[in-house]
Design a protein around this nucleic acid. Structure first.
Lengths: 216, 216
DNA sequence: GCGCCACCTTGTGTATACATAAAGCAGGCT
DNA sequence: AGCCTGCTTTATGTATACACAAGGTGGCGC
């Protein structure tokens, strides 16, 4: 955290991850300047960097807004995201380490447990578990570039995934999926793991439309 | 070219694409300032943006250098790149338009022609054809985000791919691959097209080592 | 003569000031 | 009264100045 630009950048990322910053939200340069007590320069630099990753869009004279995909864009990103997560699962099935196995078991267990004990309650807590599950798989793939790509992509869809867990039965279904995927990875069945993860990430059309409506 | 930052950014991209800027090359802030006749601010902003995409790395007090992957990084990126290009080919097989078909036919033809008439000569010219082939497939996939991701990724490997065409027989092999892939796409065989493209992009280990050695 | 310390130079991050372009508002003209 | 035009305000891009940190070099001391 030597330089302020990075501090601001990671803060913005955190805010997006935490749902404090949602698609369509305006990010005001001036208020960031105030909040961090710095000048415009580092704020601008952070915004440009985050814009370069596609998480933020800067409109001509409207300031920066958190990227809010249109319907087409949403599906386009989802299509890629499913592929990348699928690849990660496939690679994880080949490469997962002993530590990775333990971690995957633990997080899958935690998802099951949440679904069993709390049902559809506390969707935000489950969402955190879900993040951990996907991160664990991503790390097991042993490809830092892939992990990075997945994270960036996930941030573009994050708000929509989060909203999803408010719907009835979704948590139980998610936990079941996770169990299946984890078992395939732990058994080293790369192709099946890839396919299962792809299907898990790729929402059906109805669900996707629900989410877009919820965030409209 | 409203703002200078973008001008500089696209120039840097062009230089990388054209091989004028190669992995490991130092990019001096001061010389860019001189070259474009602007102040440090837009130069810095351009460098930060390009750094955010991973094409440039900024070392503490050494200025910026064009990203030069280690062996591990090289394979990690290649692994992703093959998957993305594969996905693009698969999607193209489903979605290619009439115009896209014509373009794909034309560029595949041009590759064949080059291989038939010039053999292994003029590798740089063939390299341009190769770029056009992959761009045509990428566009046919109708997913602008995927296209963007592929382009960014390709830039990280570009210098190595370019070097590849200096080797004997590689151009002919590449043209043959292109023909096979194009036919699969035009026939709408998505799965086969995806697989063929993935194999086409994913270099065998020996070739990869050759290229890394060539650029060392 | 060799080694250590200090100063200077250079590079990099940050702040601030300035200029330009666009948008909104008001006033005048038709 | 409505529309057009001009002015003002604000935002955004760009330049410049300043401060701090690090590394190199030169001089001085041991």
């Amino acid at each position: 955290m030597a330089n302020q630009t990075e501090t601001i950048l990671t803060s913005l990322h955190d805010w997006i991850d935490a749902g404090r910053l949602n698609p369509g939200d305006e990010i005001d340069e001036a208020s960031l300047v105030q909040h961090f007590g710095v000048s415009r320069t580092p704020v601008r630099e952070a915004l440009m960097q985050i814009e370069a990753t596609g998480l933020v869009k800067r409109l001509p004279r409207k300031g920066a807004v958190v990227f809010k995909p249109t319907l087409e864009e949403f599906f386009a990103i989802l299509e890629i995201h499913a592929q990348l997560e699928g690849q990660a699962a496939g690679l994880a099935a080949r490469r997962i380490s002993a530590n990775g196995r333990a971690a995957l078991q633990a997080v899958t267990e935690a998802c099951d447990e949440h679904a069993a004990r709390l049902g559809g309650a506390e969707p935000d807590a489950y969402y955190q578990l879900n993040l951990r599950f996907h991160a664990t798989v991503g790390e097991a793939a042993s490809n830092p570039f892939l992990l990075d790509l997945i994270k960036t992509n996930a941030r573009k869809l994050m708000a929509y995934y989060r909203a999803r867990y408010r719907y009835a039965g979704v948590i139980a279904e998610s936990a079941r999926d996770h169990r299946v995927i984890a078992d395939l990875i732990l058994n080293g069945d790369a192709d099946a793991a890839e396919l299962a993860m792809r299907r898990h990430v790729q929402l059906d059309q109805l669900t996707a439309m629900d989410l877009l409506a919820a965030l409209a």
